[in-house]
């Protein structure tokens, strides 16, 4: 498997080991008195190469939080800092895999063109774009399928394309919004293991949002539990599994069971 070399490289200004810092942010829709506050007084740090899960019930504000982290939604209070720079809008160090992944792919572009499009936006030449796109497709297990159109693929494959596009963009941080919520169980396990594999091979920092407690624990080094209205951090759990996971063994691990019990209790308590 060829990995785009450039993903490993690049210099970063980080304070200590912290790549991304969420500093006491509040997020909401609407202005002034009419504002509907969704997220409040929420802080956490993300280390370089770390895999973070943010777990919370449906409707708590996970997508809103992700929009805040990615620069799509401006915080009412506080700030998001990545690599020493305050995020004031979409940032070259941040790529997103959206919840509506199939609608985020452009049906008039081939898979290769979809993956290469962000590079075109950056002014890369056609040969370079295609090479990077092919490498990214290869990395997600879709080598040689660049000529297909998204609508010729299954949901799981479309999700791989969306991941490949984010990888090709070569950002330091990958944000994923419930990326596996709408695929069948087996595809879901495959995609989870793909993401774990990519993190290990490419050293990319990942923040994944999900409502699925098991998924959150299985994937992450650190699980951030959010709840309440407006949403804030109610618990942080270090899983301590290292970089390797196994769908059966890891989920049978006592640490997994403990974390699961703790999070479920936490979330029930906050209902």
């Amino acid at each position: 498997m060829t990995i785009p070399q450039s993903i490993h490289t690049g210099t970063l200004t980080t304070t200590g080991n912290v790549l991304l810092k969420v500093d006491n942010i509040a997020l909401g829709y609407g202005e002034g008195a009419a504002e509907k506050r969704i997220v409040d007084a929420l802080s956490f740090d993300v280390g370089l190469g770390e895999f973070i899960s943010i777990v919370g019930p449906s409707g708590v504000g996970k997508t809103t939080l992700l929009r805040g982290l990615s620069g799509l939604l401006k915080p009412k209070v506080g700030q998001v800092v990545v690599g020493g720079h305050v995020v004031s809008g979409p940032h070259p160090d941040i790529a997103v895999v959206f919840q509506d992944y199939s609608r985020s792919l452009m049906p008039w572009m081939s898979t290769r063109e979809n993956v290469a499009f962000p590079l075109q936006g950056r002014g890369a030449g056609k040969a370079e774009r295609n090479k990077e796109a092919e490498a990214a497709l290869e990395a997600v297990g879709l080598g040689g399928q660049g000529d297909k159109y998204p609508w010729e693929m299954s949901g799981g494959m479309q999700q791989r394309v969306a991941i490949a596009r984010a990888l090709a963009y070569n950002a330091k941080v990958l944000l994923m919004d419930e990326p596996f919520a709408s695929v069948d169980a087996q595809t879901r396990f495959d995609l989870e293991d793909l993401v774990i594999d990519l993190r290990e091979k490419l050293g990319v920092t990942i923040i994944l949002v999900t409502h699925d407690v098991d998924e959150a624990i299985y994937l992450a080094d650190k699980v951030i539990v959010i709840a309440e209205k407006p949403a804030t951090v109610v618990d942080v759990i270090e899983t301590g599994f290292g970089t390797h996971r196994d769908q059966v063994a890891t989920k049978a691990d006592p640490r997994f069971q403990d974390a699961r019990a703790r999070i479920l209790t936490r979330l029930r308590h906050n209902d």
Partner: peptide, 8 residues
């Protein structure tokens, strides 16, 4: 959203 995130 996609177009904004990838700064097209």
């Amino acid at each position: 959203d996609t177009v904004q995130i990838f700064r097209i």
